[in-house]
């Protein structure tokens, strides 16, 4: 079985062409990227607004919980059945899948943005108001920078979920790495299926690790404990070095509350 997998992966014929690994990977990333982009446009402003005003907290918490319980495959089938007859051409395959991906990405993104803003030290917020900042300035200059670690955590959760679910989209007739799994299964070609599976797993890992690196450098050193010049006994360094860089690093303030990190 393993040798079949190696043979398949080392066969250059499987890598090139419009149905090769390279093209499928690009498709996979393209679907994921566009869905995440749209989801961010919707979810992050909403999450920031809810965190800033404190209104709608109930809505976010319950949305995140409810979204976890909905099986994404079921949702995908419903979308395809419903939208396929209404659309023409390639979009008939693609649009239902993209909608599912966007819907799935919204709760973790929104929860991250909301929790990040809500978790900002009230003293820092008070100080900002006291210095005469307007609501918008408080949000932009204090809340968002401080919320960045959690916004990013939400983004990583969403990304993982989208990359995983984009694999399922192949059952709706789209491209992407899921094709190898679905096509391989039809002809009982286990090496092809296993190769597809391995490629998706590797893609998810690589993207997540890349995001981890970006997160490390995008967030203020004051929040991550990077940089020098800290007093030796300042617990900050030790605490933050313990903060791991996994996609599950989505704790909000206390470990009791976690940004949704379900995937498919």
């Amino acid at each position: 079985m393993i040798s079949g997998l190696i043979d398949w992966l080392t066969d250059s014929a499987n890598w090139s062409g419009s149905d090769g690994v390279v093209a499928r990977t690009v498709e996979h990333l393209w679907y994921s990227g566009i869905s995440l982009f749209v989801a961010c446009l919707i979810a992050i402003p909403l999450g920031l607004a809810i965190g800033h005003t404190g209104r709608g907290r109930f809505f976010v918490v319950n949305l995140a919980g409810a979204a976890r319980a909905i099986p994404s495959l079921g949702l995908l089938y419903v979308m395809v059945l419903w939208l396929f007859p209404k659309l023409v051409g390639d979009s008939a395959f693609l649009v239902p899948s993209l909608i599912v991906l966007i819907v799935l990405a919204i709760p973790p993104l929104m929860a991250g943005a909301y929790a990040g803003v809500e978790g900002v030290d009230p003293a820092a917020r008070d100080a900002a108001k006291g210095m005469g900042m307007t609501g918008g300035q408080v949000l932009a200059k204090v809340e968002v920078p401080n919320a960045l670690p959690l916004i990013f955590s939400g983004f990583r959760s969403a990304t993982l979920q989208v990359i995983a679910t984009a694999t399922l989209a192949a059952v709706a007739g789209t491209g992407g790495l899921g094709r190898f799994l679905i096509d391989g299964q039809k002809v009982r070609d286990y090496p092809q299926m296993a190769s597809g599976a391995l490629l998706v797993a590797v893609l998810a890992l690589v993207v997540d690790l890349l995001l981890a690196v970006v997160q490390r450098y995008a967030v203020s050193p004051g929040l991550t404990g990077r940089g020098s010049g800290r007093p030796a006994e300042g617990g900050g360094v030790r605490r933050s070095s313990r903060r791991s860089n996994t996609p599950l690093d989505v704790e909000i303030v206390s470990s009791q509350r976690t940004v949704d990190s379900q995937h498919t």
Binding site: M1, I2, L5, L160, I163, A164, T167, L168, G178, L181, Y190, M193, A194, G196, A197, L198, V200, A201, A204, L205, D208, S241, R242, S244, N245, T246, P247, L248, D249, S261, H263, T264
Partner: peptide, 29 residues
Amino acid sequence: YKFLYAPFTAGFGLLYTIPSLALFVILPG
């Protein structure tokens, strides 16, 4: 053991990144 915290939480956490369909297909092998 403090030195195990980061590798354990990060390492096991990473398993969650494997898409389920992929895991279902790879595991039997």
